[in-house]
């Protein structure tokens, strides 16, 4: 009886896990194995390939490639930190200052932009910032500028777009973690003589650390892997690493180099996340748990 019950439980578990396993296997593991195999091939003649790590070597020997990667990584880190700095007060306000309906309303407001696709949202920015756009006309009308102002195609605009896209992914974990902070801890912090800064530094941030780190990881990975926003808002000069991968695959038909870049992106971004975890003395299990 108990044996059959146990095997029934096990069968249920297996049935439940099958979709997850299939998803992992078909959409993540298999393509990556294929990518790995492709990335280690070098074309010697048409339709003739040889095993080699030359594709990986090219990444390091050609400055454009690794500089593009470094630029992408640094801008992603900057975007992540800026998102954190902007999202933290927002999240604190929603989680700690508001009560009841206003709280859920503001939380929902953060979500609203995500009801339209990223493409449409990015076009929204382009309508505002392009030479013939809303701001350009506004500045001319007020008299700030004599002629049309182009605000697209620079790093600052890419940054704005990236932060805007990432906001929600930072606000949600921060609101959740700050919600779990007992108000009396903050009050005790003040009561024992702390000022706003010390309370923030010694009580609120240490409590929120898992949320901060998990938000940062998500935002960093999304930003680093973002293609649409940097390309649309930054134009040809955006020099984003994903655009480089796209170029290899689609424009140059060089799947081997593209696959190698894809792997390098995965490996290097994982390294950066790992370093971030080490620096903040957090573990992956407690941030994601």
């Amino acid at each position: 009886m108990s044996l059959s019950l146990r095997s029934a439980v096990r069968l249920n578990l297996i049935l439940l896990l099958i979709p997850v396993f299939l998803w992992l296997l078909l959409l993540i593991i298999l393509p990556h194995i294929d990518m790995l195999l492709v990335s280690t091939q070098v074309k010697v003649r048409p339709r003739v390939y040889e095993f080699s790590f030359a594709n990986y070597g090219e990444f390091f020997s050609e400055p454009l490639y690794w500089r593009t990667f470094a630029r992408t990584a640094i801008m992603s880190i900057a975007a992540t930190l800026l998102t954190l700095v902007i999202a933290f007060p927002v999240a604190y306000y929603i989680a700690k200052m508001l009560r009841g309906r206003m709280k859920s309303f503001l939380f929902l407001l953060c979500l609203v932009p995500f009801w339209v696709s990223e493409l449409v949202r990015t076009f929204g920015w382009m309508i505002l910032l392009r030479e013939s756009g809303v701001f350009s006309n506004l500045f001319q009308w007020i008299g700030f500028a004599d002629g049309p102002v182009e605000m697209l195609y620079n790093d600052a605009t890419i940054m704005v777009g990236l932060i805007y896209t990432s906001m929600l992914f930072m606000v949600v974990p921060l609101v959740t973690i700050l919600d779990s902070l007992d108000d009396s801890l903050v009050e005790a912090g003040y009561d024992l003589g702390g000022n706003a800064f010390t309370v923030l530094r010694t009580i609120i941030i240490p409590h929120a650390m898992p949320g901060i780190v998990s938000g940062c990881i998500v935002v960093f990975m999304l930003t680093l892997g973002n293609y649409l926003t940097p390309v649309l808002l930054g134009g040809k000069d955006s020099l984003w690493f994903t655009a480089q991968i796209y170029t290899q695959f689609i424009t140059r038909f060089n799947w081997e180099l593209g696959a190698a870049f894809g792997f390098l992106l995965l490996f290097l971004s994982s390294m950066i996340v790992w370093m971030g975890l080490k620096l903040s003395r957090q573990t992956l299990t407690e941030t994601m748990g």
Partner: peptide, 26 residues
């Protein structure tokens, strides 16, 4: 100073850090 209903000891600090908190603020 106040002793809170659920004490509000800082869970992110050790016992000594909890007691030292107010002293350091002074």
């Amino acid at each position: 100073n106040m002793v809170f209903q659920h004490l509000a000891l800082f869970p992110m600090m050790t016992v000594a850090e909890n007691i030292a908190y107010g002293l350091l603020r002074q």
